[in-house]
Design a protein around this nucleic acid. Sequence first.
RNA 1: GCGCCAGUAGCUCAGGGGAUAGAGCAACGGCCUUCUAAGCCGUGGGUCGCAGGUUCGAGACCUGCCUGGCGCGCCA
Length: 705
Amino acid sequence: MHARLKGLIVDIFKDANLPEIEPQLREIPFEGQMGLALSNLFQIARVSKPDLEKDELKKYAGTLADLIAEKIRNTGDFEKVEAVKGYVNCFFKPQQFTRELLGRILGDGTDWARMESHGGRVMIEYSQPNTHKAFHIGHVRNAVTGASLVRCYRYAGRDTIAANYYGDIGSHVFKALWYLGKYHPDLKDAPDGVAERGKWLGEIYADAQKKLTDSENLLNQVWEILKPLNKILYNAYGSDEATFGLYTLPFNVRGIARNEEDLFEGRSNNDVIKIVDWMASQAKELRRRAGDIRIEPFGDLDWVNADTLLLNLNQIRSQSDYHQRLNRPIEVLDIANRWKIGDPKLLDLYNETRQWSFDDFKRIYNEIGVEFDVEFKESEVEREGLLIAIDLEKQGIVVDSMGAAIVEIDNQLKKRFGEPMQDKYRVLVLVREDGSSLYGSKDLALAKLKFEEYGIDESIYVVGNEQKFYFQQLFQVLRLMGFPQWERCFHLSYELVMLPGGKISSREGQVVLYDDVISELRDRALSVVKEKNPGLDDEIKVKISEIVAMGALIFGMLRVDTNKVIRFDFDEVLDFDGRSAPYIQYAGARAMSILRKAESEGIETPNDIALSDFNRELLPVEIELVKILNKLPEHIIKVVEDKKPFYLTNYAYDLAVKFSDFYHQCPVLTSEETVRRDRLLLVKAVRINIETSLGLLGIATPDVM
RNA sequence: GCGCCAGUAGCUCAGGGGAUAGAGCAACGGCCUUCUAAGCCGUGGGUCGCAGGUUCGAGACCUGCCUGGCGCGCCA
């Protein structure tokens, strides 16, 4: 209809010698009216008569509208055509439109809007949880966003591979393993049960992090003392360092007195302990000989402060757990080294606990209805990542920088593609100074795998907003590597889920766990079901509450734009009224209820459209309902185009609102027979569209609520 | 300092250059002998962050600024 009207208008323009501007058609925005409006007549008027005054222009646009309306009216295709306020409104014949639409919906059910396959193969990578860490509500946002996008892509006819990429190696794993080895040898006190073990591991990581944060704080404390102390020492000793025994120090500790910025730079905690010891002794020595040395006080750092500093430092050093606390990071490094040489005992611990994480993730995915076709692991691409780095070095794309392998991206873009030098993509480090791999090299290996082994043309990464810059870098490096697909790599970034107290952080122990949220939701849902529908079997009640709880969670995570921060409010998520999944599910349940009752009363519920259907004046609510039923496909197309699943939450909600409106205004079963037949058809179509749109979001529609 | 994202009703958010800027929550007032009241109807509530600009027309587009979040070399 859209295309036909457009063609018609183009012809009219031509006949009237109007400029060749594409006519813009939009839906007539009035309630209870169905049709299309030509909306850019002003533009056409302006182009065709550029010199008109404002008022004249309006008048002219009005004349054009009259002219065009007259011609369209003469075709007889529309029920009514009117020119008003510079628009040409073309009203459809709603009966015919409705028959056609409902015929399609009832004919194909939830597949009615499914699109023909087109476009290349796309991989959507999402979820990417780290093993040995807790699965929190932020992970849920990622998972349900990715999963619903996959469903929409497929529905829209795209060959889509859903991929996960587990963070099963890296410093977080070493930290957890360190803590496990130290405080839970042989995993003796680990609980049984998939969920329990997952939770336990998450707590282990949090505890490890707490201890390491404590160490870090201690280090900072020491640093805050050392910094001014260093300055005092340097000022006192100047360049005459030999006199004071600098050379008795280990080589790597030398020179600290010269540059405070580098005091801790690149040093292990072992070094730090040595530095502290040395500084303390030197300060003491200096204090002893203070009478002999001329001190030039600077800033607020005078001798009084130096004495205080020294006192504080010695106080810290004399704490019984001082060494132990500063040693923790060294122990974690030791774990990393044992990992490198493949210590079998450590590997056993790793494999066992990693599996616990995998099992628990699988359990959660199962609950939230998320599936993957391929599951990558960081551990599997690590080696290949290092090889790629070596290869790139041979090609001159990667260069050495203080032992690390880096890509100077802006340089390379200039060199290889002659692009003007800019300071945009900066530097990406692929391999650490110590030769160990980094996320960058692993992602390159993974991308290569995706392009070459899976033959994809398009690659989508569903990853948090904070990694935006990194992905820009990554895609540029893929370009430098000569992958033509680099242009069709897309970072679908989403904002974080924040708590009233700030960022969710498993490091700081400020987390809202998935399990805690969903169990709260289930409890609440169950009590509401019991209250609203006490007559149901207990088993059914539980089933419904499951569906409602999960719907509320998923909808809560999807209902706002991905680039908007979600401030997680428990009360809001628990609220099943208004703009929520339960509201929409309820509309679906009511629709089903009507159909059920019709059947039990022996009323025929038609599956096919007859020419006699909808042969009456439709009520505005009915027309509104038909209009929104028609809009499902365009919403799915938009989701895919913009990669924003939340459009579909808007659609599902709007549909439910319209249906509620209809429900209250239009009795179905008690209506006169032909009207009843029409409305039963409408109700069926509504139920199908609710199921389809919620289904694409990963939300089920219960028959009863 | 530079970059990305956000700023719309008290709060949380929709708004595809087009007709009178809309929902939910919260507040207040109504509607269950009629297909499920997890619903419906009504009332109040807006300098669309600020200032310019483009346009017949700007909440939307452009420029500058303000506020908040995130990022900018060996975490992912």
